[in-house]
Design a protein around this nucleic acid. Structure first.
Lengths: 142, 142
DNA sequence: TTGGATGCAAAAGTTTTGCACGGTT
DNA sequence: AACCGTGCAAAACTTTTGCATCCAA
C-alpha cells in the first residue's frame, strides 16, 4: 500500500502518523492471519526497520484502542495476536497439529446474536469464534 | 460433592488422587464460570488449603491433559482460564463493562461445522465461541 | 517401596512502565 | 514550541522448570 494512504488512515483514526506506525499497519495489511507482537517485530527487522519491541506493543495497543486493529487470544497460544480490523469480521480454522490458521468465509451467527440480545437484554457488540481440528496433512499423523 | 466421588472421578481419568486435586476439582465443579489459576489458588487459600501456585498450574494442566478440565483464552484476559469439561460444551456471553461472564444455552454451530469439514477436508474437533457486549447494568454507563 | 505429587526458588516468556530524548504537527 | 512517539532498561506478571522431599498406591 502506498505510504500516503497509510498516513491518511492512521491520522483519520486520531493517531499521529509516524514511519513506525505506517510500517506496522502495512505489515498487518499484508498478513492474512493474525500476528503476535513478536512476529510483527521480526518482520519489521527483516524489512530493515529497527523498532523496539515495546514500541511495537505500544503501537498495537494504540491501534487496537482506535479500532484499526483487533487483539485476539487463541486457545493454546501463549501470546496475544493482532490482526487488521477489516470491515466485517473473520473466523479462523486452526490446525491442532501444525497450528496453521486459515480464515473461514462467512459467519453463521447473525441471527443467533439477535435472539440472544432479546433473551438477555445485553447490547451485543461482537463475538469471537475459532474452530479447531486437524488439517489434511496432520489428520493422519496422530 | 462428596470426597469419595471426586476421588473416583480423578482416578478414572488416569490421575493419582490427592487432597489437592480433589480440592481443585471441587472448586471448578462449584464454579459456574471459568477461573484463572490464581483464582483457584485464592479460593483454596480461603478454604484453608495452602497449595503452591505451581502445583495449581501443574494440576490444572494435568487435568486438561486428561480432559477433566478445559483451558480457555478469552480476548481481553491476560491469563488463561480453566473450567470443568462438562458433557457438551458451553459458550459465554462476556460483559465488556464489568467482565462478568454468563453461560449461553445451546450452540448454533453444528451444521456449520459439518459444511466446513466438507469444504476444507479438516477433521473438526471443536470450536470456541464467545460473545461480547454490555450487560443491562453496564449498557448505560458508556 | 516406588513413582508420581508437591514445595520452593529460580528461570523463562510476555507485556508494561518510567524516564530521557527525538520527531511530528 | 509543544506534545506525543520512541528507545532503553527495568519491572511486573503469568507460567514453567529443576530439584529435593513427601505421599498415594
Amino acid at each position: 500500500m502506498e505510504k500516503a494512504e497509510l498516513n491518511k488512515e492512521i491520522r483519520a483514526s486520531g493517531l499521529k502518523s509516524t514511519k513506525s506506525r505506517c510500517a506496522i499497519l502495512d505489515i498487518l495489511k499484508q498478513n492474512d492471519r493474525p500476528a503476535s507482537a513478536d512476529e510483527v517485530y521480526m518482520e519489521l527487522k527483516s524489512r530493515g526497520i529497527s523498532l523496539n519491541i515495546s514500541t511495537v506493543y505500544r503501537t498495537l495497543d494504540a491501534m487496537t484502542e482506535k479500532n484499526l486493529v483487533k487483539k485476539l487470544s487463541i486457545t493454546g497460544e501463549s501470546k496475544a495476536l493482532f490482526e487488521l480490523n477489516a470491515i466485517g469480521h473473520k473466523h479462523y480454522l486452526v490446525c491442532l497439529g501444525c497450528r496453521k490458521t486459515m480464515a473461514i468465509e462467512g459467519c453463521p451467527l447473525e441471527s443467533f446474536e439477535r435472539e440472544l440480545a432479546e433473551e438477555t437484554d445485553f447490547v451485543i457488540e461482537g463475538h469471537k469464534l475459532d474452530i479447531y481440528g486437524y488439517c489434511p496433512e496432520c489428520r493422519n499423523k496422530t
